[in-house]
Computed example of a mutant assay.
Amino acid sequence: EKHTGGNHRPSTIADAVEAIFGAVFTDGGFEEAQTVIIRLYEPMLSQLTPTTLGKDAKTNLQEVLQRMHFGLPLYDIVEIRGAPHDQEFEVRIDIPDLGISLTGVGKSRRQAEQDAAQKALDSEAIRNLKG
């Protein structure tokens, strides 16, 4: 999997995590499995709000910008590095209305765009908009 990039494929990672939870359940029972799952996911779950539940960074960013009547962000591929089976994408996000220009990186164009959008959401300019 590592040689072909499968170790970064979400379905492969999900299968591995499921197998670990299954092993904990088989070895320690329901309560032990529940403890492990809660310990792993609680930090992520505690940050969910009704406005962000189930939404990715690009969607959240677009909603913030539209709510404030700003134009949509623009995404451009800056560079694609690596062999075809193990590429890394670098994407630039521009939000002209706010003077924001950042880059994101990922194993796919979509992941790089999500990374760039998250960086924009984390930027001081956007944090100030959200109050």
Score class of each variant (00 low, 15 high):
residue 45 L to D: 08
residue 75 Y to K: 00
residue 62 Q to L: 14
residue 31 E to S: 13
residue 59 T to E: 11
residue 79 E to K: 15
residue 13 I to G: 00
residue 106 G to K: 05
residue 28 G to M: 04
residue 46 S to D: 12
residue 90 E to P: 06
residue 81 R to Q: 14
residue 50 P to Y: 02
residue 63 E to M: 02
residue 45 L to G: 02
residue 120 A to R: 12
residue 97 D to E: 11
residue 63 E to Y: 00
residue 129 L to R: 15
residue 84 P to T: 01
residue 59 T to K: 13
residue 67 R to A: 01
residue 77 I to T: 14
residue 64 V to W: 01
residue 96 P to W: 03
residue 116 A to R: 06
residue 100 I to F: 12
residue 118 Q to I: 05
residue 98 L to W: 13
residue 127 R to Y: 09
residue 60 N to A: 07
residue 72 L to W: 11
residue 94 D to V: 14
residue 5 G to N: 05
residue 72 L to F: 11
residue 78 V to K: 12
residue 30 F to N: 12
residue 16 A to P: 05
residue 13 I to D: 00
residue 120 A to V: 03
residue 79 E to V: 15
residue 99 G to D: 05
residue 22 G to I: 14
residue 63 E to A: 04
residue 114 Q to V: 04
residue 79 E to C: 08
residue 28 G to D: 10
residue 124 E to F: 10
residue 29 G to D: 14
residue 110 R to V: 03
residue 120 A to D: 01
residue 121 L to H: 06
residue 86 D to Y: 04
residue 13 I to H: 03
residue 1 E to Y: 02
residue 96 P to Q: 03
residue 25 F to N: 15
residue 40 L to A: 12
residue 47 Q to D: 10
residue 19 A to C: 08
residue 56 D to A: 10
residue 28 G to T: 02
residue 21 F to L: 15
residue 48 L to A: 03
residue 40 L to D: 05
residue 54 G to D: 02
residue 31 E to I: 11
residue 17 V to H: 12
residue 66 Q to F: 07
residue 47 Q to A: 10
residue 75 Y to A: 07
residue 68 M to H: 07
residue 54 G to V: 09
residue 40 L to F: 11
residue 96 P to K: 12
residue 78 V to N: 06
residue 33 A to F: 05
residue 38 I to E: 14
residue 10 P to F: 12
residue 50 P to F: 00
residue 55 K to A: 00
residue 87 Q to T: 07
residue 43 P to Q: 04
residue 102 L to Y: 11
residue 72 L to P: 10
residue 13 I to P: 00
residue 70 F to R: 11
residue 67 R to W: 01
residue 72 L to R: 15
residue 56 D to T: 03
residue 16 A to G: 07
residue 117 A to S: 09
residue 66 Q to V: 06
residue 123 S to N: 15
residue 36 V to H: 01
residue 6 G to N: 03
residue 91 V to L: 06
residue 20 I to D: 04
residue 45 L to K: 14
residue 10 P to A: 11
residue 117 A to Q: 03
residue 115 D to E: 07
residue 128 N to L: 15
